[in-house]
């Protein structure tokens, strides 16, 4: 383990008191678990006693003291999911993966955990794989979900997923199309916009498939940066009126010919987007 790595994480939060959970969270994100060495180092650096840190680390379910697999499958066993037979789903997962809930497969690929409520009780039983929700899960769906998890859920299957469709957008100021027919992403013409962040200006081409996050850019935009978007034709800013519900950054909007507005979060890495078809002539 890299000691300097832990030290840099601890140093980042050193400034404000009570940053213990933030430190542990960051270590957990980096290593997928909390190594013993890291906890000892945190104790040494922050002045908290090891007992307290260990208590916090074992209290919260989001921390794990054992290495976790590449993919995390959480099955809800809250009351609403339980009455809809989520225990059967857990059993099926355990049988297929040959592990118990809370354990990781020997190949280090999948960790199976049960959680108590995901707040989507109407859709239960709920299974979350690496942040993607599967609703109304039954035993028959378990095999497919495991295959999905192993393949990597981030890879969007453009051809077979019916929820993904191409959209055309235009600038709300000059009404010219933002679609660039000379540059294809995901096999479709891309959406071209100009972005600026810091002192850099450049083009970004987004996939025009609704639900795909594929993007090509002139300059690599660092993750978490909030970027200003401009129309490449009239250079007006594509600002929106609302803020992102998941990260709070301003949403940008673009018109969809035929009615409707597309909202995209302006933070790089935030996947919030929304199609507002109010008043659309469908």
């Amino acid at each position: 383990m890299k000691e300097e790595n832990f030290l840099s994480i601890i140093g980042k939060h050193q400034a404000h008191l009570g940053g213990l959970i933030s430190i542990l969270e960051d270590i957990q994100t980096e290593y997928s678990y909390l190594p013993e060495q890291a906890l000892r180092l945190v104790a040494q650096e922050t002045g908290f006693s090891l007992v307290d840190i260990y208590g916090v680390a074992t209290f919260y379910k989001l921390f794990s003291l054992k290495p976790r697999g590449k993919h995390l499958i959480s099955v809800c066993s809250g009351t609403a999911c339980h009455v809809r037979a989520s225990s059967g789903v857990v059993e099926e997962f355990e049988q297929r993966l040959q592990i118990n809930a809370g354990e990781t497969t020997p190949d280090g690929e999948i960790t199976l955990v049960t959680v108590n409520c995901l707040g989507a009780c109407a859709l239960g039983p709920i299974v979350v794989v690496d942040g993607y929700y599967f609703s109304n899960v039954n035993r028959q769906m378990v095999g497919e979900i495991i295959d999905n998890a192993r393949a990597g859920i981030d890879r969007v299957d453009v051809d077979t997923d019916e929820r993904i469709f191409p959209i055309e957008v235009s600038c709300p100021h000059c009404n010219r199309s933002l679609i660039d027919k000379n540059f294809y992403i995901d096999g479709y013409p891309s959406i071209r916009v100009t972005v600026s962040f810091g002192r850099r200006h450049g083009w970004v081409r987004l996939s025009c498939l609704y639900g795909s996050y594929s993007v090509e850019q002139e300059y690599e935009v660092p993750i978490d940066t909030i970027v200003d978007f401009f129309c490449p034709h009239c250079h007006a800013e594509l600002s929106g009126v609302s803020d992102c519900t998941s990260c709070g950054a301003p949403m940008i909007s673009a018109f969809i010919p035929g009615g409707g507005v597309l909202h995209i979060c302006s933070r790089r890495g935030c996947k919030a987007h929304m199609l507002d078809l109010h008043g659309a002539s469908l």
Partner: peptide, 25 residues
């Protein structure tokens, strides 16, 4: 000393040393 403390929560709550090994404190 602070050699022992609470671990876990709910029905898994217990008292003991971190990592269940002899504490150097």
């Amino acid at each position: 000393a602070k050699a022992i403390g609470f671990r876990g929560r709910g029905q898994n709550r217990s008292v003991g040393t971190p990592f269940d090994i002899q504490s150097d404190i």
